[in-house]
Simulated assay, not measured.
Amino acid sequence: MFNLSSIIFVPIVHDLQVFGWLTFDQLGEEFDYSKDELTLLEQVGKWLGLYLSRKDDEVYIDTDLQLTERESMILNLLAEGYNNKKMAELLQLSEHTIRDYVSSMDFVLVY
């Protein structure tokens, strides 16, 4: 009657703040999806909301940790969730070199 499409909206939210939404539109065709897939889409919206809620301000932490520029870059990539293979691609190094950098840094990562 209204010529509407089959649409799924996934809110992008964090702590009651709405950043937007993802829209999946099948142009009137029925979606083929499972409850698990919808749950995954909901989780993606929450992860994106968490990411977007981060402040752009740099945080200064006073520590005795002395890192080289390369070690700092690798540490930042680790904090963003990159694995050794992706870091190696981004920094144009081998995975073995990345592994050596990570293991040589004298600190413990806590997840």
Rank of each mutant, 00 (worst) to 15 (best):
I61S: 11
P11V: 05
H96T: 15
P11W: 11
W47H: 07
W47N: 13
Y111T: 05
S94P: 08
E30M: 04
S5A: 12
N3C: 02
T68A: 00
F9A: 06
R70K: 13
D64L: 13
Q17E: 05
E89D: 13
T68R: 06
N76Y: 05
K46G: 08
S53E: 10
D57H: 05
V13I: 14
D100Q: 15
L41Y: 04
L90I: 09
W47L: 10
E69N: 10
A79H: 11
S103R: 12
E37G: 12
H14L: 13
Y60K: 09
L48R: 04
W47V: 14
S104F: 03
Y60D: 12
T39Q: 05
Y60V: 12
G45S: 01
D32I: 07
V18E: 12
I61P: 07
A88H: 06
L48Y: 07
Y51W: 07
F107S: 12
I74C: 01
L16E: 04
G81F: 11
V18G: 04
T97K: 15
L52R: 00
L40F: 01
Q92A: 14
Y101P: 05
L75F: 00
V18H: 06
F31M: 01
I12K: 02
K55T: 05
V102H: 07
S94A: 04
K55W: 00
F24C: 02
V10D: 02
E80A: 12
V18L: 09
D36M: 01
P11H: 09
D25W: 10
F2Q: 05
V108F: 03
V13W: 09
L52Y: 06
L78S: 00
V108T: 12
Q26F: 03
L109Y: 07
L4C: 13
T63W: 00
E69A: 08
L40G: 03
H96M: 15
F24P: 05
G45I: 07
Y111I: 00
G45W: 06
D62Y: 05
L93N: 12
Q26M: 08
K85N: 12
W21L: 14
P11A: 08
D106C: 11
Q92V: 13
